[in-house]
């Protein structure tokens, strides 16, 4: 039954997390940056679930599962607020390139 080893899950999630983190740094469109952040959150979720599978007690397993459910909820709330902010920004200046967000740089 133990077909996919833990290390494979961990490698994949670390890779996803790295892709997300690099994306946040190099991308210039806030929506794409936001997608990269979601990727990072999902990498964390995958890590939780992979580890949960290998916990000895039911309580410890469920702790990981429940955490993932909460993270999904939190991510949804983040989408609501984040897209709201991006929309307002777009209404104000019709250009949401991150490089243009520099009013306060002196």
């Amino acid at each position: 039954m133990e077909s996919v080893p833990l290390s494979a899950y961990l490698t994949l999630s670390a890779f996803l997390f790295a892709v997300g983190a690099v994306g946040v740094v190099i991308k210039r469109n806030p929506i794409v940056i936001f997608m990269c952040i979601e990727l990072m959150l999902n990498a964390a979720n995958l890590t939780f679930l992979a580890f949960a599978k290998h916990q000895p007690t039911l309580q410890a397993q469920v702790a990981g599962h429940v955490f993932v459910l909460f993270v999904i909820g939190v991510a949804a709330a983040e989408v609501a607020v984040g897209l709201g902010i991006i929309t307002v920004m777009f209404r104000l200046r019709e250009n949401i390139d991150i490089d243009q967000v520099n009013l306060m740089r002196e």
Binding site: V24, M40, L41, G82
Partner: peptide, 17 residues
């Protein structure tokens, strides 16, 4: 802030593991 939260969350996941 969301970027930093993702780091914090990944840290928690590793701690859980």
């Amino acid at each position: 802030g969301a970027f930093a939260s993702a780091f914090f969350l990944y840290g928690i996941a590793l701690m859980y593991g």
